[in-house]
Design a protein around this nucleic acid. Structure first.
Lengths: 261, 261
DNA sequence: CCCTTCAACTGGCTTGAGCCACTGGTGGCT
DNA sequence: AGCCACCAGTGGCTCAAGCCAGTTGAAGGG
């Protein structure tokens, strides 16, 4: 295909399952199989290639692992639709967006013509995980944080899991302990506590989901998650909020636009 | 575990393969199996749980899919080491780093005490993919770009694949067509062409690797890639360089630190 | 006409068997 | 002491068969 990547070395006797997978992959990329199309059934493939059903099945598993196809029990295997991304821009923290009275997520949903729903899963006093404690600058061996966990939906499809951590000593007894945090959400309340968001640090990584995450996000096999560990710094450079975002990667992208130098 | 996630609902008769996977997963998370430890062999697991070897094997596949374990032929299955991340900060574009004479990648490698190697895979005139053409503001139906493909290694382990696209009309005949681009790399040459990098746009997504990418990056099953579509804008807001970074997600993280408002 | 039933087809998962390739250690030979 | 051949153990992959569960549409009954 390009640059002598191993495309030119199939002769070394690929296992049958890989061969079938490659052929199907070629059909998809050549457009002979379009998104939404149904692949031949496992039994049909097995017969076509003269293999056992398990081998054809293995080929399909390989494709699913690459995120190219999706199997639906009782219906068939389908070429996956390229997902338009639900995009989270770095301006999602900007306070100018706050004038709309919408939280960043609702704003983004509105932009894309989708309906937003946010479930408050839990609000608890907790001892923070180590990575959170380091960033929020609180001890990790006592119940030093308030943990709010939310699930976000767009058109009733789960999009992200967000765990927000705040200092217990300053949130205790405030509206931040309530599901409804009032105008402009938690950042509104945090401003009243003297924290104006001035800088943010986003640490981004990708990994495969845990089974729990896969269940909540309704993730199909072969879909990774994007994890963002977000830290908000106030006018004095003090971290006052840390959140862990877990996005489904098949429907989510991140956009950072920033000045250089 | 927390918040009534589905951890409390295993009774609905999990298939044996899942049950075995969950038990092994629990052992790993409880620390009874530490990173680097060898799991029981497939045959041993099968006997222990009274299943066929294939079923034990399937359980291990599930764990591998979650990135928890890695199988090595002839040796065994091992709990995966938590990888320290090779981190790319948003300051990697900053020109102040250019004074060291090191490219951003070499700088980061140095920071982490690793040796950097960069292979120039190809330098070609090409017709750009659509997403690149849009961002670089060139036609996608003619050979309008110079494409440089590099592979990056840290301590001889592959870390990222980078495809850089530049306007053919302005790079033609310059040092940008050579493997060695001279002091401060391509950005040095591009400044001489009148493009001072002023803003960057990074579009981030995650997905499973293609087989080609998996081969180049030596990716184990269950490891996704981070894809960054990077656009450099000059002092006039003109895009003059677009790059596609493909990082292995098990060793790479991204860090963005930026002002708000 | 609508609804129910049912059969055929789909993927999900397991079994038990076998052969292969790779690894690491044992033990024998030089 | 050093080398090397061998072998037991490991995962990689396949086969052929079977049962289960979800889906669909056609046939039949009301």
């Amino acid at each position: 295909m390009l640059f002598g990547m191993t495309t030119s070395a199939p002769p070394p006797q690929q296992p049958p399952s890989r061969r079938i997978a490659e052929e199907l992959r070629a059909e998809i990329e050549a457009g002979r199989l379009s998104p939404g199309d149904k692949l031949p059934s496992e039994r049909a493939l097995a017969e076509r290639y003269g293999t056992a059903r398990n081998t054809a099945r293995e080929a399909i598993r390989l494709l699913a692992e690459q995120g190219l196809v999706t199997a639906k029990q009782g219906r068939g295997v389908f070429v996956r639709e390229p997902q338009r991304l639900f995009r989270f821009g770095s301006d999602r923290y900007s306070s100018k967006n706050r004038e709309t009275g919408l939280t960043p997520f609702r704003l983004e949903a509105q932009r894309q013509g989708k309906t937003a729903r946010i479930d408050v899963v839990s609000i608890d006093r907790e001892t923070p995980p180590k990575d959170i404690a380091e960033r929020l600058n609180v001890p990790s061996d006592e119940a030093s944080v308030l943990h709010r966990e939310n699930h976000y939906f767009a058109d009733d499809e789960p999009v992200q899991i967000v765990s927000t951590y705040l200092r217990w000593d300053e949130t205790q007894g405030t509206a931040l302990m309530q599901p409804k945090t009032g105008p402009h959400g938690i950042y509104g309340r945090l401003e009243e506590l003297g924290h104006v968001m001035t800088r943010v640090r986003d640490e981004i990584s990708a990994r495969m989901p845990t089974p729990e995450e896969a269940a909540v996000l309704e993730l199909l096999p072969g879909v990774p998650v994007l994890e963002v560990l977000h830290t908000s710094l106030d006018q004095d450079g003090v971290p006052f909020e840390v959140s862990r975002y877990v996005h489904r990667a098949d429907q989510t992208g991140l956009l950072y636009e920033l000045p250089v130098e």
